[in-house]
């Protein structure tokens, strides 16, 4: 009987935390409820004599997956601003009703049927004699070697795929990004074409992956600041590109000869901007 009471307490925590994941405005709180839910499941695994998987559950789910969720939330700031009162509309009530139907069907199946399937020979006595991990390992490395190897391949593919996804398409959005120095321009960015982005460098004052520099209206110190920043860039990929980069200077902004020399030294090609107002 104490076992059943313990089960019911942990089960209640598990269900409440599962509901907490759904009915919570803050995504971070949802992730923490999820952590509690995974923890209670680990307790059940221990109760069911699956200590190895209980520890794996804590390591993999609580240690890796929840941390990953939290990390991504902090990376992209993902509160949608969904309001609880807008959830209880007709559509969602229908969905809740469907969930209850699912639950009823599964619950009926649980109570109507007896256990099916052949019993194995890994009884509690065997586990006690050889140890939990040994018993699992014996099964994993004899009957399930091939799936085990496939899981290893899957993990490798996953790691490579994730790195590729996170890195590869960083610069796919715009074919060309232009850093513009124009003190008469107030906006932060401008998109003259579908794949062209002009960024107001005088407002941003930081380095980004630009493909071209345009100096339309700027003073010598401002240009010197850009050159100094570019010269001190530590990003090796960007450093390799500056020597091939084009820098267009409007003759009207009357930069001193020294500044133009500096630009020539830093960028691959310094040219006068001919068609003013027309995007190159």
């Amino acid at each position: 009987m104490p076992g059943q009471i313990f089960f019911l307490i942990v089960a209640a925590i598990s269900v409440i935390s599962a509901l907490g994941v759904i009915f919570n405005r803050s995504v971070v709180h949802s992730a923490l409820f999820l952590l509690v839910n995974f923890g209670t499941l680990a307790v059940f695994y221990f109760m069911l004599n699956a200590q190895f998987l209980g520890v794996a559950q804590i390591l993999v789910y609580a240690g890796a997956i929840v941390v990953l969720f939290l990390f991504v939330e902090m990376l992209i700031g993902s509160d949608l601003g969904e309001k609880v009162d807008t959830w209880l509309n007709g559509r969602n009530l229908l969905l809740i009703a469907l969930g209850l139907v699912l639950l009823t069907v599964v619950g009926t199946a649980v109570f109507e049927n007896t256990i099916f399937g052949a019993a194995g020979n890994t009884t509690v006595e065997v586990v006690d004699e050889f140890g939990q991990t040994q018993v699992i390992a014996a099964s994993l490395f004899t009957d399930f070697v091939l799936p085990f190897q496939l899981v290893a391949v899957l993990l490798s593919v996953g790691v490579v795929g994730v790195v590729w996804l996170a890195q590869h398409q960083q610069r796919q959005r715009f074919r060309r990004i232009i850093a513009v120095l124009d003190s008469t321009w107030a906006e932060e960015t401008q998109r003259p074409g579908p794949d062209l982005l002009r960024v107001n460098w005088l407002r941003r004052k930081t380095l980004f992956d630009f493909d071209q520099v345009e100096i339309i209206q700027a003073t010598d110190p401002q240009v010197a600041e850009l050159v100094a920043m570019v010269e001190h860039d530590t990003d090796s990929w960007r450093r390799s590109r500056y020597r091939q980069m084009r820098c267009l200077v409007d003759p009207d902004c009357k930069l001193s000869e020294d500044t133009v020399q500096m630009l020539r030294h830093t960028f691959g090609e310094v040219k006068n901007l001919v068609n003013k107002g027309v995007v190159a």
Partner: peptide, 28 residues
């Protein structure tokens, strides 16, 4: 795992092991 325990078999636990690996990749 519940079935694995009540049927005295480790197969269910191996399945869970595989599912955990797949779940980790899926989340990543």
């Amino acid at each position: 795992i519940a079935f694995s325990r009540y049927l005295d078999s480790t197969t269910g636990q191996i399945f869970v092991f595989m599912i955990m690996a797949v779940a980790a990749v899926e989340v990543a």
